[in-house]
């Protein structure tokens, strides 16, 4: 397995270079270093000298990818791409275009993102599996039919509706939790409740439908019939046999998400005023801070790759037949 993981990690290097190159190309396709300087220096009284100085200070006065004036390897290394991208591979994210240490910002903003994403993820899985099992148990009944209809309706509704509706009902009308904001320590709990509830409710429709399909696929297999023939109750059959085997496809979708929980949710964090990494990325895009955008895309790619590797590893855990070669 170790050889497999090492191989996958080595495959990740060209993928990350490609992602970096793509981010770089897309960013500089719509923004020139001059545009970035103007955004950062403000609207009023910006002189060409100030723009030149800003670019020089941050290394944006170099050519983008190829420096024809340089000699030897400098033709490639004395460029914006090389200077701003290579350090990422040792997880040195450098400074933002506003001068802040990106690594430190990521460290501090990661926790609020996790505070929302982790409970949403865990409670969501629990609720979705429960509902899916309930529908599978009552398969073919009116409960199953209406459950699927409700799930389709729920997955058709925009997350924004749940957010605004939840804020209106729970915070504005019922006065049960703060409408938005964040705090540290125990005080954080009152701010987390509503986003987590909304996150869970928002995910019920699609996940329940998907998991129900997984359960139904398993429920008609021979081993289930055998278990029933042994006289086991339907609940026992479901929990002890069907659930275990249906976990393999569920894991496929779930484990890959785990590392991405650090990245946070753009909509949730923005509407609930959560100072996480989701809003960090959005702010950076709006302020054309390439250093942060590049760092966050890189981090997202790394976490996604880790998620895929973890998914492969988890297969071997839940299904002994799977071997990583």
């Amino acid at each position: 397995m170790i050889a497999y993981i090492v191989r996958r990690l080595l495959y990740a290097v060209p993928i990350l270079i490609g992602v970096n190159l793509l981010t770089f190309a897309l960013f500089f396709f719509v923004n020139s270093p001059d545009d970035m300087a103007r955004i950062h220096l403000g609207m009023k009284r910006v002189t060409p000298e100030a723009i030149a100085k800003w670019k020089e200070d941050r290394g944006y006065d170099k050519p983008l990818l190829y420096n024809s004036r340089a000699a030897g390897a400098d033709k490639f290394t004395d460029t914006i791409f090389f200077r701003h991208s290579v350090r990422l591979f040792v997880f040195d994210f450098g400074r933002s275009d506003q001068g802040r240490n990106i690594g430190r910002d990521i460290m501090s903003r990661m926790w609020p993102s996790l505070a929302i994403a982790l409970p949403t993820f865990l409670v969501g899985i629990l609720v979705n599996i429960t509902f899916a099992m309930l529908l599978a148990f009552f398969r073919g009944s009116y409960l199953d039919t209406w459950g699927v209809v409700v799930a389709v309706i729920m997955m058709s509704i925009s997350t924004l509706f749940y957010v605004i509706g939840g804020q209106y009902l729970v915070s504005k009308l019922l006065h049960l939790v703060p409408i938005s904001g964040y705090d540290t320590g125990v005080e954080a709990i009152k701010f987390i409740i509503l986003p987590v509830i909304i996150g869970v409710i928002g995910g019920i429709g699609s996940s329940t439908r998907l998991y129900r399909t997984f359960f139904l696929e398993e429920i008609n297999k021979d081993y289930v019939r055998t278990a029933r023939a042994k006289g086991l109750s339907e609940l026992r059959v479901l929990f002890h046999h069907v659930l275990k085997n249906a976990m393999i496809p569920i894991l496929t979708g779930v484990v890959v998400i785990i590392p991405l929980l650090f990245i946070g949710s753009l909509i949730m964090e923005s509407f609930f005023g959560i100072p996480g990494l989701g809003s960090y990325t959005i702010d950076a895009i709006n302020s054309q801070d390439f250093a942060i955008v590049r760092a966050m895309v890189f981090l997202g790619s790394v976490l996604y790759i880790i998620g895929l590797i973890l998914t492969d590893i988890s297969y071997t855990v839940v299904d002994p037949r799977v071997r990583l070669n």
Partner: peptide, 17 residues
């Protein structure tokens, strides 16, 4: 406090926060 969205901001004002 950081308040990016106008709806929560307005409601908090009406709630006296």
């Amino acid at each position: 406090s950081l308040e990016k969205e106008s709806i929560p901001y307005w409601n908090k004002f009406l709630q006296g926060y």
